[in-house]
C-alpha cells in the first residue's frame, strides 16, 4: 500500500470517528435544551427571554444530528470508493508488471487492453473520490455553520440567564454546556475538513 492510499484510508476512517463524537455531543446539546426548557418554565417571567432560546437550541441540535447522519452515509460511500480505488490501483500495477514480464512472449500484446482498462477505471475512481470529497466538505461546512450559530446562542443565553434571579446558576450552566458542545463540534469537524482538504477537487 502506498503512503497516499494509506493516508486516504486514515482520512476517511477519521471522518467516521470524529463524526461519531460529534453525534454524541449534538445529543448532549439536545438534552441541555430540554433541561433548559424545564428550568425556564419553572422560572416563569424571570426567564422569559430564555424560552425561545431553548427551542432554538433544540432545533439546532436536531438539525446537526440529521446532517451528521447524512454525512456518515456519505463517509461510508467514500470508504467503499477508497477500497475500490486501492484494488484498482493494485490491479493496474500488477497488470503493468505482467506486461513488462511478458515482453517477448507471443501474446504479450494482448495484455495492453487489460492494462488500459485498469488505468481508466483507476482514474475514474480517483476522480469520483475527489468529487465526493468536495461534496462532503460542503456538508461539513454546514455543520460548522451550526456550531458557530450555537455559540452565538450560548452567548445570548448567558445574558438572558443573568436576569433570571435564583435561576441564574442553572441557566448559566445550560449556556455553558451548549457553548462547550458547540466548541467540540467545531473542533472535530475542523479536523475532518483538514484531513480531507488535500483530496478536494482543485
Amino acid at each position: 500500500m502506498t503512503n497516499q492510499t494509506k493516508s486516504q484510508f486514515i482520512a476517511v476512517a477519521s471522518i467516521t470517528s470524529e463524526l461519531s463524537a460529534v453525534m454524541v455531543v449534538a445529543k448532549e446539546i439536545s438534552l441541555a435544551a430540554a433541561n433548559a426548557k424545564a428550568i425556564a418554565f419553572r422560572a416563569g417571567d424571570k426567564a422569559k427571554g430564555f424560552q425561545p432560546i431553548t427551542d432554538f437550541i433544540n432545533e439546532l441540535a436536531k438539525e446537526t444530528i440529521e446532517l451528521v447522519t447524512n454525512i456518515n452515509i456519505y463517509a461510508l460511500v467514500l470508504y467503499r470508493l477508497t477500497v475500490d480505488e486501492f484494488q484498482k490501483t493494485a490491479a493496474y500495477n500488477k497488470f503493468e508488471l505482467a506486461a513488462k514480464m511478458a515482453e517477448g512472449a507471443v501474446y504479450a500484446k494482448s495484455m495492453q487492453e487489460p492494462v488500459d482498462h485498469a488505468r481508466l477505471s483507476m482514474q475514474d475512481c480517483q476522480r469520483q473520490f475527489k468529487r465526493d470529497v468536495s461534496q462532503l466538505l460542503g456538508q461539513l461546512e454546514a455543520v460548522m455553520h451550526h456550531a458557530r450559530a450555537a455559540r452565538v446562542i450560548a452567548a445570548n443565553s448567558r445574558i438572558e440567564a443573568s436576569q433570571a434571579g435564583e435561576y441564574l446558576q442553572s441557566l448559566q450552566a445550560v449556556a455553558e454546556s451548549v457553548d462547550k458542545a458547540a466548541h467540540t463540534i467545531h473542533d472535530n469537524v475542523q479536523r475532518c475538513r483538514i484531513a480531507l482538504s488535500i483530496y478536494r477537487n482543485s
Binding site: 505482467a98 513488462k100 511478458a102 512472449a105 501474446y107 500484446k109 494482448s110 487492453e113
Partner: peptide
C-alpha cells in the same frame, strides 16, 4: 504470483 503467471501464460495464449 499473478504477474509472473499471467506473463507465462501469454507465451501460450492471449488474454481473451
Amino acid at each position: 504470483l499473478f504477474a509472473p503467471m499471467m506473463a507465462a501464460v501469454l507465451h501460450h495464449a492471449p488474454v481473451d
